[in-house]
Amino acid sequence: MIESVMLWVFALVSAPLFAGIIFKVKAFFGGRRGSPLLINYYTLIKLIKKGSVYSSSTTFVFKLGPVVNLGTIVTALFFLPIAGHAPVLSFNGDAIFVLYLLGLARFFTIAAAMDTASPFEGMGAAREAYFPIICEASIFMILILFYRLTGDLTLGAFLSGGQPFGLWQTAGPPLLFVVIALFIILLTENARVPVDDPATHLELTMIHEVMVLDHSGPDLAFIEMGAFLKLFFYSAWIARLILPFELAHPLLNLLLFSAGW
């Protein structure tokens, strides 16, 4: 239990680092030196130190968005088995609960974006509502497969202990597709390259970034932190499936791998 809580804290603390590693790897493949590894921590601190400018058309919904967003993903991490250890909390059906928590986060992000009355953010919100329709359907298909294999609907039963290794032995080929599907879902949900590019600043091409255009200061820090944790959530999931061995932290390997994209 204490181990699980410590791992949860580890997830909260290290998530920006993993996103930093992605930056670094991207820069490496782009032939650049790239930003320092701890760049995301600097960004968070910088944002927290700042004040905010609010649009005069926004209401409390706009301010609530980032808080709820971060709150849901922090709660979702309670149910995630990190690096093979049992999650802090677990009950039958928690996989669905967690997915709906993430859905709640999405709802509030969209609501906050719509609250600004900006057409750009409306476009981003429309895309944010559209892509997850496809993603959620595939995630639920994956959950159905896992349920058929394990007879359980908890993330703990899928990903903790030696379970992923057993899954590979009983259903290797489908699991290969699950990993591929999950990877595509990761890219979509976290607004990464082929779907979205967090680096562009052309509103018309963005999904997630365009929705947070009007956020600033600590609010933006909350959103960034939420995005890092969400990336951590999905990559921890895939990492366990790719490397089902009892290593200390297979997460590192995965994030390097995912960044090469």
């Binding site: 004040g51 400018v53 609010y54 649009s55 005069s56 058309s57 900006s118 255009l213 009007d214």
Partner: peptide, 8 residues
């Protein structure tokens, strides 16, 4: 904390 128009 400032107030302004929506960024557009």
């Amino acid at each position: 904390i400032g107030h302004g128009g929506t960024w557009g």
